[in-house]
Design a protein around this nucleic acid. Sequence first.
DNA 1: CGTAGAATTGAAGAACCTCAAAAATTGTGG
DNA 2: CCACAATTTTTGAGGTTCTTCAATTCTACG
Lengths: 250, 250
Amino acid sequence: MLNTATSSKTTPVLPTIGRECADRSTGDTLKLLAEQLKPQRRVVHTGDTIYQAGERFGNLYILNSGFFKIVNLSADGREQVVGLKFRGDWLGFDGIAGSRYSCDAVAMDTGEIWVVSYEALLAACVTHPGLLQVLHTAMSREISHDRDSLMSVCTLPADARVADFLRYWAETLAERGMRTDEITLRMTRAEIGNYLGMTLESVSRALSRLARDNVIGFATKGRRDVQIPDVGALSAFVQRCLAPAPAMLQ
Amino acid sequence: MLNTATSSKTTPVLPTIGRECADRSTGDTLKLLAEQLKPQRRVVHTGDTIYQAGERFGNLYILNSGFFKIVNLSADGREQVVGLKFRGDWLGFDGIAGSRYSCDAVAMDTGEIWVVSYEALLAACVTHPGLLQVLHTAMSREISHDRDSLMSVCTLPADARVADFLRYWAETLAERGMRTDEITLRMTRAEIGNYLGMTLESVSRALSRLARDNVIGFATKGRRDVQIPDVGALSAFVQRCLAPAPAMLQ
DNA sequence: CGTAGAATTGAAGAACCTCAAAAATTGTGG
DNA sequence: CCACAATTTTTGAGGTTCTTCAATTCTACG
């Protein structure tokens, strides 16, 4: 019904008719940033925190490799994973408005981040307008994706949410030129469940059902590596969850 | 436990030590934008759509008065209210990354929006760095608030979610210098429920319970106007919902 | 007024959560 | 390299919350 209007969201069509770097690849963007900003590079390991809620804002961070989770904390002690960051993503935008970060950024794997002073970035943007475009694109993407997350949580049943989560993960890796037929979830069931608004048991059951339906597979050893032979099958599974009746013929 | 680190989120402390316009009031910011951008002004009425998903991006919009909802659409026809916009908020950031808007922006009341060409804004930012700060602050706020929304939906039971929604609405109005003791929800129960990830019946029941507990009141005629004598009572209600056991003394 | 949309409320059912136990995996120190 | 402990994951059973379906009341508007 609304397919035509929204198809650009699922499959980024529209070649580079737009402004100069609207569709720059992750690698190209990183190269541009490295050249023009000469950022300080920092290696991180699992569990390292790049910034914490309440800490004074000053830097933005660009993820060159590895994988991060963004954790929101409420005054009453609730914790919520509100975002996952992959290669090419920026971290720290939440700190601009209030002069303090409002989340924790935690490394989920070994990786490298580039540290960029916000002040220095703004200065560099004056001479290199392309940088500003890259910055705004990153912020815009984050806003769009946060909205998609909210929609997932609000409109999909638990099983579909897990399937959609895997689909998003695989597509994100694909965009960045990585393997998607077998992905390693570096999150526990509890962390996935927290991110998706369900219990760890529900995540486990959903994964079991996905495996039973051959939408995903588990590697021989360990159940943290998920085989995704066909990403489209995940989307199809989501649709099947949404279909109310089994739609028996005749 | 984490109070000190996160208190800056609920009550924006920290006076204007920071950069020039970090804590500018909504009115001052609007004045600056009006002076420096001379934006085209446009009056909107309930139901008007400022932009739609799939439409080519070109403008950002600043809400001077009135009230908007942002609606996300999925390829399979699901609709999701993913944001509410009040005076001083910007609309259209989602369009920057993909050169097309990814949501619908729908007016929920009569109001006035200011139309700003993104290109023109970037040009103006070069000569007026304060504008860039205002722009980034608006985007950063949106990212932070989207995360708070996700946390609400993921961690709060239905009743608390409705209470937290009213609390946010009242605090948003307060920040903009409007009345908060009696607010007019210009949304149906169905729209509120959609935004909060629950059915319209659950919203209705939650509001009834809030009224029964005297946390809110209903205006004599009609149940769309909500009286909020004490915003703190809403926060207390949320905490009560989170407390597992009734905590009987002894 | 009278109709259409919106809101409330009740009853029954489904989806998900909690609690619990067992199996699998990972990490650690000998 | 192995054994042990700690953690993670799976799976089942029962309970709770929320949804669905339905009927009624209320509100707005011609």
